[in-house]
Amino acid sequence: MAEMEKLREMIINGNGKGIADHVVKLVDRGQTPGSILNDALIPAMDIVGDLYQKGEYFLPELLISARAMQRALDVIKPKLAEQGVKNVGKVVIGTVQGDLHDLGKNLVNMTLEGAGFEVIDLGVDVPPDKFVAAIKEHDPMVVGMSALITTTMPAMKETIEAITSAGLRSKVKIMVGGAPITSEYAVEIGADYYGPDSTDGKNYARDVATGKV
C-alpha cells in the first residue's frame, strides 16, 4: 500500500515532520496499529540499521530516523495497548556502575524500541543490585550493559556475578557493548553476547525473542 510505503520512507529518510499526522491518517483509514508497527515501523528501522552497519548511514541519520519512528510510535502506542498487542519482548538496559556515558546505551535503546521491544532503561552509573532488582521486577528476556571506558569494564563482571548470586542468571540472556569491550572480554566475564553496535544488539535480542538462541 502506497501510504504504508510512504511511512517507511519517511522513517528511512528521517523525515519526522508530519509523520504523526500521517500515522493518524493511516489509522483512520483502517490500518491496524499492529500492522503499522510490524509492516512499516519495524521494517523501516531494520533498513536504517542495515544502512548504519554498511557505513552508508552515520549517527545523525540514525538519530533522525529514530526520532521520526518515535513520533510515529507515540501515536500508536496507546492503541497497541488498548488492543492488547504484545511487544516483541522486554529488555533491561543500563550503563554500568561508575560510568556516566549514555550515548551507546541510548542508541541500543532506540534501536530496540524501533524493533518493537519494551525497554526498561535504568540510566547510567547503575549498581549491580539495581540490575538485579530490575530483573526481579520486570522479568526481561535480555539484560544489556554498556561501558565506555576501560576503568568501568570490571563493573560488568561484578553485575553478572550479582545476577548469578541472586539466582537469576539462567532466566536472562546478557549482552554487553561499548568502545573497549570485545567478544573475548564478553566470554571472559560470562556474558552471552557482545554487540559491536546497536543493530547487532537488536538482532541478538530478536534471536532471543524468537528462540533462536
Partner: peptide, 8 residues
C-alpha cells in the same frame, strides 16, 4: 545526540 540532529 543533539549536535548530530542539528547537523541534519
Amino acid at each position: 545526540e543533539k549536535l548530530c540532529i542539528w547537523l541534519s
